[in-house]
Structures are given as C-alpha cells and as structure tokens.
Design a protein around this nucleic acid. Sequence first.
DNA 1: AACAATTAGTTTGTACGCAATTTAATTTTT
DNA 2: AAAAATTAAATTGCGTACAAACTAATTGTT
Lengths: 171, 171
Amino acid sequence: MPAARKAPKKAARHTAAEPSPLAAEAFADLLKLDLQLCFAVYSTALAFNGVYKRLLDPLGLTYPQYLVMLVLWERDGVSVKEIGRLLHLDSGTLTPLLKRLEAAGLLQRSRDRADERQLQVTLTAQGRTLRERAQTVPLGIGSACGLQAGELLALRDQLLALRQRLDTAAE
Amino acid sequence: MPAARKAPKKAARHTAAEPSPLAAEAFADLLKLDLQLCFAVYSTALAFNGVYKRLLDPLGLTYPQYLVMLVLWERDGVSVKEIGRLLHLDSGTLTPLLKRLEAAGLLQRSRDRADERQLQVTLTAQGRTLRERAQTVPLGIGSACGLQAGELLALRDQLLALRQRLDTAAE
DNA sequence: AACAATTAGTTTGTACGCAATTTAATTTTT
DNA sequence: AAAAATTAAATTGCGTACAAACTAATTGTT
C-alpha cells in the first residue's frame, strides 16, 4: 500500500485568503523543512569532502579530480563536454582542473582531428596506473558511511530524484 | 539488444581470503554504491545552489551568506566561532564572507568588550529589513523540491545521521 | 561561396572552503 | 607575576564553481 503519491498534504498556495492559523503554521514549518533539507545536503557534501580529502591526499587528487579520473578509467578519450555532462560541471570548472591533471602527468589534452573544437582527454600510462592505488578509496568511503545496501540505494535514489527536480526548477 | 549491462562484473580484487566470488562481487557493488551516494550528495548540493542563486540574486546574497543571515535573524550579536559551529564553516571562510556582508551594509563587526579576541557580529537596520524581502525564499525552495513533509523529514534526518558519521570518520 | 548561427573550450572575475600560518588576547601553570 | 599554553580571528595559498565575455571551428542558410 504505497500511500497516494499525490496526496496534496501541502495546503500550498494560499496567498490570498488564509484557511486557518493552524494550517498556516504547518505550512510555515514545511517551508522551514525545505531549508533544512538543503542545509543537510550542503553540509553533508562538505563532510564527504573532508573524508575524501584524507583518502585522496596520498594520491594527490581532489574529489572533483577523482571524479574525472573515474570517468576516464571507465571510458578513455572523452571530450570536455562529455565529462561535464556526466559530472554536472561546466567547462569553466573543467578546463583548469584538466590542466592540473595534465601538469601532474595523469592525462593528455589534445584536439580531436575530426573536429578541432573538441578536446580529447586521454589517460597517460601514469594515469592508468593510478587506478590501482585508488582501489582502496571506495573501501574507506564505505566504512565512513557505514550504511546498509538498502539504505544506500534508497538515499541515492531520493537524492537523484530531488536533483532532477532542482535542475528542472533552475531551467 | 545492447550487451547485458551486468554481464562481465569485474571479479573484484581477491587480495586476501575471500569468502566466495559471489560475496566478493556483492561487496564490490556495495562499494560502488557508496561512491554513487557521495556523488548524489555532491551534485544535489550544486543543484540546490543553482536554485538558490535565482532566488537570492535579487537580494544580493549567495547561499552561504544567506545562511549567515538566517543565523543572525534568529539570534543577533553572535561570534564568528558560533556562526562557524552552527554552519560547519571555519574562520577562513567566514572572515571574508562577513567582511563582504559588512561592506554591503547588512551587518557590523566589532570586538567583544569582555573578550577582545571575539568578534561580535550584529545586524544593521538594513540587515534586519532584508529579512522581509527574504520571506519568499523558502517558498521558492519548497516548490523546487516538491516533496511532502514526510519525505522531507526522512531525507533530512538520514542526511544528518550520515553527516554525523562522516564527521566522526574525519576525526 | 559567403555569411550568419551554433558549438566547444578558454579566459576573466567573483566567491566560497579549507589547510596552514600568524597575530593578538586570555587562561593556565609554575 | 612571568612564562607557557590555549583560544579567536585574520591571512595566505590552492582548488573548485560558475557567469559572462571571448576565440576558433563547424554547421546552416541563403
């Protein structure tokens, strides 16, 4: 019995005539909850970053750099646009990040012959090798989270659904 | 029919004594889930930021600045340390942020008479006035989230519990 | 073919976020 | 009371994030 998905509990929209003080109060509480949810997401992201820092410092990577390496380990020779699409980051963020990874000797940036506008991002031998040293990272994150598979899955999916709505709202 | 997505499965790392290939595989999947959860949190935080930007730009605030204002609207005359404790931010982040809010005429920074090490952050009249213009922000966030009270509450609490574990893990 | 529109990436400028160091004030120890 | 330790902010340095403006390559339109 999955509880009517559209039950309009929200008492929403009563700009004009207020139904009752009680409903207005409940509505205000709901609004506060939204803010609190956002803050929970925000501060959890910062906390994750703190854990990742400890795990990634030995590899010389930041978390966003690690994300880029994950993309490349999965599929080498990607364009900046594709990386941005996968990670929800724009080229203004990625260009300097990729240059740092190139300077660190982990990847190479070269223009696509077929379309010179595009940049082909390819791993170097060193970049491929780093993958092995990075094997322990998920273990460290897993133990820091300390959640069961079910919880993990549910939380991830709720967040992704939320992100979708937020992206839509931001047009 | 595009290649069974879960076919090759990777046969993850058999470094020490693995109980069984099946268990090892399930374990590897779990590790991947942790990474995905982190990415979900990370990208949802960025998406929230995008929505907030639209709502806060007219007020001339960023999201972290809005958080500081929320603290001050609730309890004026706080120290930097207290703001940092509430928002999980350190003085290296807050000092320049507060200076910007001061330059914008929203607050005043002055040393505590009783303890000159501490800074008293107090709202100006303009800072207090801004509160009214900010009344519509929660409404905008609420509609962008589009969640019901129960979901909101559950998600918030799961995230806060997770953050607690992450903070502990990071010592 | 010529020119406009689009696209991919880069650059510039602003604002976090945090580690590490520094400065100044207060507290603790001796 | 003097010296040592602690504390609160500020400063410095590095790496995101993203808007806006810019450059160069490709596509489309006439």
